[in-house]
Design a protein around this nucleic acid. Structure first.
Lengths: 209, 209
DNA sequence: AGCAGAGCGGAATGATCCGTTCCAGTGCTA
DNA sequence: TAGCACTGGAACGGATCATTCCGCTCTGCT
């Protein structure tokens, strides 16, 4: 009988269990993305499984949220690393932003934070994410395509702005977010008066501490 | 004895009652702006009054929310009317946006909507608000200072983006919001590639129907 | 001066919601 | 065929709120 845990074509009880692993995770992402404080039962319902299927895999809601959040953080890092390899500094930054917005990674990492006590791993990953972001910003600035008065910390807030755009339809939401990201990116390119106010300070948005 | 209901210097029981009217409204605005689903008791506590002081004035939470929201809508209209009188089409639009963002009117009108059944009055006011907004946009476009591919409905989403910027400190929040509004406004002025995706349709964001 | 009651603070109430546990059923697996 | 890994979903217990209620204070009129 097949023993490969990676296979999606597993049959029987074990197959269902393996498939439930991913079904549950997907459902959780969808549900908690739509409403970070959704009840656990909503996840089970959306996944089409019972509540016990969920509690067999995670010790509690907090663990599930933590997993989701950490996955999002890892995805952010992966996108940032991929962008770092783009030879063009401007498209590296802007396409990175586009991908992060599309994947709704920001909602995952930020809106869910605070609902659980972060693990040390996540702190480390968060630091790495910050570094990579700073790299992308610095490179774009050095290339002269990004206005000088933008700082690394602005990126998080920009993503927050895009994440605020929401409609009942996920696809439509993605499209509209791209629209306002485009507006923001046009602003990032320069033009207009200097940006007002002191920029966000490094520790200021310390949801991660 | 003084009978003037407008006076803030009313003495005695009636005076306290009149003063509580405004204290409660202010507290409600502050509290519900910070958290639209805050408990009623939080409002009373923030106002420094008991819960009954609140229930003496409003039949229930919903009525209070409705009042707050309607007030916000009226303020929006007032700002839009004031802006309409600005002879410069561009500053009419941008300074209007700035004032609305500063006053956090958008959070008031949008984040609170859905928590109560709107009155017909509000529907009427919402329509008027839409008209005024469209006027500001049309004028800026006609003057050639606003990019052509922006539509009236974009304004609501822009405000939503700004409202998404939040810090524990209200003053700092205001400053940061202005920062990203400036970025968006720079984008609105033009430059960069055309905005992607179909723009939001008139009825699409129908939180008010 | 005295009293009727407007207004108030805050405890008590009752409903709702939600995370978690528990148990009986099901059909692989050996 | 016996055992058990896994599951669905009901039941439990705690928490949170909106709202009501009661006893008190102090005002404003007679």
């Amino acid at each position: 009988m097949p023993r490969d845990a990676e296979s999606a074509a597993l049959s029987g009880r074990r197959g269902q269990a393996a498939r439930n692993d991913v079904v549950i995770l997907d459902a959780a992402r969808t549900v908690f993305l739509a409403d970070p404080k959704a009840p656990v039962s909503a996840v089970a319902e959306h996944a089409g499984v019972g509540i016990s299927a969920l509690y067999r895999r995670y010790p509690g809601k907090e663990a599930l949220l933590c997993r989701l959040c950490h996955d999002g953080l890892r995805q952010y890092i992966a996108e940032a690393e991929a962008a770092s390899r783009d030879p063009d500094a401007w498209s590296a930054l802007t396409e990175f932003l586009g991908r992060v917005v599309d994947a709704d990674v920001h909602s995952l990492t930020v809106n869910l934070a605070g609902a659980f006590t972060p693990t040390p791993d996540m702190g480390e990953d968060a630091r790495r994410a910050g570094e990579l972001t700073a790299g992308l910003v610095a490179r774009a600035k050095a290339a002269g395509c990004l206005r000088e008065d933008v700082v690394t910390e602005d990126v998080g807030l920009l993503l927050e702005c895009c994440a605020a755009v929401r409609t009942p339809d996920p696809d439509r939401t993605r499209v509209l977010r791209r629209r306002y990201l485009a507006l923001l990116v046009a602003g990032l390119a320069g033009g207009g008066p200097p940006l007002p106010g002191p920029p966000p300070a490094p520790g200021e948005l310390g949801r991660w501490k």
